[in-house]
């Protein structure tokens, strides 16, 4: 049986990890490859890097971290942030990333999903969706949660999968940063609607939140940033609890 995945997410700006305050004993704490290896040793099953470099010129330089991570890391990883074209997919995959995630650009141009999956395979096309609860449903937001769209999140996920997305990362805008748990209702709706892996994002604050997402909502992976960055939840302890709850999990990580 496929194991549920624990996925730390790292923000990268100008080629350096931001918010990476946890590993004080490492001199160069902001090196993406160093942090990535550390997370792999702790038991991460996969890593996600979001490049938040503002300008596209600087992003091109910033992305050189991808090659170093590909060389050093022995688990899969995806790269997102500012992906706008098939050429962006090509660049990132050539540098050695396993998957590329796309968010706002796919809303503005859904054909991007079709084109990228046709060229590179749907296994490397991740559709990331920012969703906010409104009137009993979920509305898709773009540009980091700034702009509301007319799209329903579940319908957009279905359309994304139809176009070729091989995985959905669903970020709950309401739950994000609250540390009160993933949006289980949203996850369940998505699990019912599509047959690709659903990765929960936004809201993790305690170990039981991961158990809930995996067990109650049957999420295929759980993504989190701050609880891992600041050492609030050690991955090893988290995976032990998940396993004790009969959730298939990869325990042997050393």
């Amino acid at each position: 049986m496929i194991a549920k995945r624990i996925i730390p997410c790292l923000d990268v700006r100008d080629g350096r990890v931001v918010k990476g305050r946890k590993f004080k004993d490492i001199l160069d704490v902001e090196d993406p490859a160093v942090l990535a290896k550390r997370y792999a040793l702790e038991g991460a099953d996969e890593l996600v890097f979001y490049d938040i470099t503002a300008s596209s010129e600087r992003r091109a330089i910033s992305l050189s971290f991808v090659e170093e991570v590909a060389r050093e890391l022995d688990i899969p990883f995806s790269v997102g942030g500012g992906v706008r074209s098939v050429e962006d997919f090509r660049t990132i995959l050539r540098k050695g990333a396993d998957k590329v995630s796309v968010n706002s650009a796919a809303v503005h141009d859904p054909e991007l999903i079709r084109e990228a999956s046709r060229r590179f395979g749907n296994q490397c096309v991740v559709l990331s969706i920012d969703a906010k609860k409104e009137n009993g449903g979920y509305v898709v937001y773009t540009e980091g949660g700034r702009n509301a769209t007319a799209l329903d999140a579940v319908e957009w996920a279905k359309e994304g999968v139809r176009l070729g997305a091989g995985e959905i990362v669903i970020n709950s805008i309401d739950a994000d940063g609250m540390k009160e748990g993933y949006d289980i209702d949203l996850l369940r709706r998505l699990k019912k609607a599509v047959n690709v892996p659903i990765i929960a994002s936004g809201g993790a604050g305690a170990i039981e939140h991961f158990v809930e997402a995996a067990k109650v909502a049957d999420a295929d992976g759980m993504l989190a940033a701050s609880v891992f960055h600041f050492g609030e939840i050690p991955i090893e302890a988290l995976k032990k609890v998940l396993s004790e709850n009969d959730i298939p999990i990869r325990l042997k990580v050393k």
Partner: peptide, 28 residues
């Protein structure tokens, strides 16, 4: 789901094969 994507456990068909020497059944 297709593709078969993710960490999956190994079941040994030929236990004594030298390629399996350093791993255990169930390893992902």
């Amino acid at each position: 789901n297709i593709p078969h994507m993710g960490w999956n456990g190994l079941k040994f068909d030929n236990e004594s094969h030298p390629l399996l020497k350093y791993i255990e059944e169930g390893d992902y």
